[in-house]
Design a protein around this nucleic acid. Structure first.
Length: 367
DNA sequence: CACCCTTTGAAGAGC
DNA sequence: GCTCTTCAAAGGGTG
C-alpha cells in the first residue's frame, strides 16, 4: 500500500483526495486488491445484475481478459515530447501510448526510448493491472476491430486548410511540442486511433485549423453525434441536403479530467469483468477503483489530464467551458432542490468535501 | 427520442 | 474565497 507521503518532491495534486480515501474505508481494498475487485463487482452485481451473470462473472471475465490484453503493445509511441518541461515522472508508462484524445502525436514518452519495459508490462501493478495491460492503453477504447480506417480517403491531405471552425488558434509553434507530428503523419493514422470519431475526419467542421483533428471537436448534435454525422455525411438522405447547407458549428468538448480519462480506459475492462453494461453501475465501480488507486497511479491521470487541458487551451484559446453550457438539457433543479444539500453531488462527493479540502490542482510547476 | 443515472474533476458564475 | 452548477464519457434504463 503506497504511502502518500512517500511521493517525494513533486506534488501531484492528488494528495487531498488520497487522504480522503483513507477515510472511506478503502484501505483494505488496497491491501486486497483482488478481493476488492470481486467484492465491489459482486456488490453491484447483486443489485444490478441477475445471478446467472454473477455465476459466470470471474471465469468469463478472465476469458475475456485474455483477449483484451493483447493488442496494446504496438501503440507505443516512440517520439519524444517536450511538453513545457513536464517533470519527468517516475513511471514513464503513462506516456507509452498515444493518448486517445490526441491520438497521432500526443504524449510520446520521454522515458520510453530506453524503454526497459515491454509495452504491455506493468510497472504500476498495485491495483489496476490484473490483465497485463498498461493503464492508458485502453484509452484506445476501440480495438482493431473498429471500423476505423487508418487513412480515411476523406481525410484531407491538405492539412493547411482551415475553414469552418469557430475557434481561432494562433499559429503556435508550441504545438509541435505537443504533437511531435512528423510531416505527413496525419495521413498515417495508426490503428491506435481506433477511437477516433469519424466526424473528426470530415474536414473543416471537425478539423482543427492546423488540420489536426481533435477529439474535442464534435458535431453539435449530441451524444452519438459522430455516428449520425457520419451517416448524414455519407448516406445523405434527401432531408439531409438542406441541413448540410447550414454548416453546423462543431462543438468543442471539454477536455477530459483525470477521472474521465481513467474511466475511459478502464470501462471496457470493468465491463468485461462484470458483464455489466450499465454505465451508471460501471461508473460506480470505477469511482471506487479510482479511490483505490495509489497516488502515483492517480498522478499519471492527473498529469495526462493536465496535458490535455494544456493542449486544449492551445488548440482553442478562445474556448470556454461556458460555451457548452446549455448544450445538454438543463438539469432539473427542482429535483435537486427537493433533495436539497449539494445539488447533484453524490454522497461520496459530498463526503469528500467534508472530509478533505478541495483537491489540489495537478502540479503546476510543469506549466 | 431526449433525458436520467452515476462517477470525479475542472471551470465558470454568483455571492 | 467559497459554494453551487454544469459538463465531460458511457450506455442501459425510462417516460
Amino acid at each position: 500500500m503506497p504511502q502518500l507521503s512517500s511521493g517525494g518532491g513533486d506534488d501531484l495534486g492528488a494528495n487531498d483526495e488520497m487522504i480522503a480515501f483513507k477515510d472511506e474505508g478503502e484501505q483494505e481494498e488496497k491491501i486486497q486488491e483482488n478481493a476488492f475487485t470481486e467484492r465491489d463487482l459482486a456488490d453491484l452485481k447483486s443489485s444490478l445484475v441477475n445471478e446467472s451473470e454473477i455465476n459466470q462473472g470471474p471465469g468469463a471475465a478472465a476469458a475475456r481478459r485474455g483477449q483484451q490484453a493483447e493488442p496494446r503493445g504496438h501503440y507505443v509511441e516512440k517520439h519524444r515530447e517536450h511538453l513545457n518541461g513536464v517533470p519527468k515522472q517516475q513511471d514513464g508508462g503513462m506516456y507509452k501510448t498515444s493518448y486517445p484524445g490526441y491520438p497521432l502525436f500526443m504524449l510520446p514518452d520521454p522515458y520510453l526510448q530506453s524503454s526497459s519495459m515491454p509495452p504491455s508490462s506493468n510497472k504500476v501493478s498495485v491495483v489496476q493491472q490484473p490483465h497485463g495491460m498498461h493503464p492508458l492503453s485502453s484509452l484506445l477504447p476501440y480495438g482493431p476491430n473498429d471500423h476505423f480506417s487508418p487513412s480515411p480517403p476523406h481525410l484531407p491531405t491538405d492539412m493547411s486548410q482551415k475553414t469552418g471552425t469557430r475557434v481561432h488558434r494562433p499559429q503556435s509553434q508550441d504545438l509541435s511540442g505537443f504533437y511531435s507530428l512528423p510531416p505527413g503523419s496525419v495521413g498515417q493514422i495508426s490503428p491506435s486511433m481506433g477511437w477516433f470519431p469519424h466526424s473528426l475526419m470530415l474536414g473543416p467542421s471537425g478539423m482543427h485549423p492546423t488540420g489536426i483533428p481533435h477529439p474535442a471537436i464534435v458535431p453539435p448534435t449530441g451524444k452519438q453525434e459522430h455516428d449520425h454525422y457520419d451517416r448524414g455525411m455519407y448516406a445523405k438522405p434527401h432531408g439531409e441536403a438542406k441541413r448540410e447547407k447550414e454548416p453546423k458549428k462543431p462543438v468543442i468538448k471539454k477536455p477530459l479530467n483525470a477521472f474521465m480519462l481513467y474511466m475511459k480506459e478502464m470501462r471496457a475492462k470493468v465491463i468485461a469483468e462484470c458483464t455489466l453494461k450499465e454505465s451508471a453501475a460501471i461508473n460506480q465501480i470505477l469511482g471506487r477503483r479510482w479511490h483505490a488507486l495509489t497516488r502515483d497511479e492517480q498522478a499519471k491521470y492527473y498529469e495526462l489530464a493536465r496535458k490535455e487541458r494544456q493542449l486544449h487551451m492551445q488548440l482553442y484559446p478562445s474556448w470556454s467551458a461556458r460555451d457548452n453550457y446549455g448544450k445538454k438539457k438543463r438539469r432539473k433543479r427542482e429535483k435537486q432542490q427537493d433533495s436539497n444539500t449539494g445539488g447533484r453531488r453524490s454522497a461520496s462527493a459530498t463526503f469528500r468535501e467534508e472530509a478533505a479540502p478541495p483537491a489540489l490542482p495537478p502540479p503546476m510547476e510543469a506549466l
